[in-house]
Design a binder for these strands. Sequence first.
DNA 1: TAGACACCCTGAAGTAGCTATAGGGTCAAG
DNA 2: CTTGACCCTATAGCTACTTCAGGGTGTCTA
Lengths: 146, 146
Amino acid sequence: MRIGELARRTGCEVETVRYYEKEGLLTIPQRDGSGYRSYTGQQLEELQFIRHCRSLGMPLAEIKALLRFRYHPQWDCAGVNAILDTQIARVQEQMRGLQSLLEQLHLLRMECAHRQQAGECGIMKNLNQAAKGEPCLCHPLPEGCA
Amino acid sequence: MRIGELARRTGCEVETVRYYEKEGLLTIPQRDGSGYRSYTGQQLEELQFIRHCRSLGMPLAEIKALLRFRYHPQWDCAGVNAILDTQIARVQEQMRGLQSLLEQLHLLRMECAHRQQAGECGIMKNLNQAAKGEPCLCHPLPEGCA
DNA sequence: TAGACACCCTGAAGTAGCTATAGGGTCAAG
DNA sequence: CTTGACCCTATAGCTACTTCAGGGTGTCTA
């Protein structure tokens, strides 16, 4: 099959397929008489593997590593587990960051209840206070307010 | 003060300060006899305002908009609220995404309890199954498994 | 007075993972 | 013979920085 059909069947863009090839994730396809890429069912699976891992938020470098385990089923799977653990830790850390961000944003948002001049707006007042290094909602202690 | 001191006092890199200037966030500083940038207390506050907003996860474009409200305190603050609401919605959406990612990753991780060959590893089996379009942990229904 | 060192300058390239654009070739249908 | 869908390569753009190359400035010490 050609690149367009491959893209349709995996739900990813043609450019993305070529990008994965350039990055060494997809095995290089054969070319037909017109120089068009020609893909096999193997390569379709390979691309679906990649897309699936991407949907789990994994970076391309780690997907590349997982692909190597796919090609070498006799390898010890400890490396696979390590990649998963890393990914879980990464996602957990991102969530912690977003959680505290969200709390700060909510607090800040509540400082302004109705339309008024920006100079009187509790949100702007808080942001301007923080800019002066004074205590603010997000960083109540002066020394914590970078 | 020169750029190094400004950077130290705000806890950001010299290159980042120059970058903000190039992007039009920081007002252009005076230059001294040697062509070095010379900053005022006003500009220190401006930079701290920017860094504070960045610590709330806001993109530079929205910080730019907030800075305009800072310079125009008589403007209606509805725009400020809108920026906050957008940011809150963005963070909430990211968290939802990460939450479902985390659940999928945990399920997948539990498929492999002990060291073995990659070919027998429950994680790799699941990923390979997904690659074939078969039901997997993350996308139990075949048609949902892109 | 010479050298060392910290600091400053500009401009360009690199990071992740694509997406988009320019400028062209191939092929089947009407 | 033209239209349209598809394919090709190479390059630039996106965010928010960081890094690097190559060079100038300013002060302190030997």
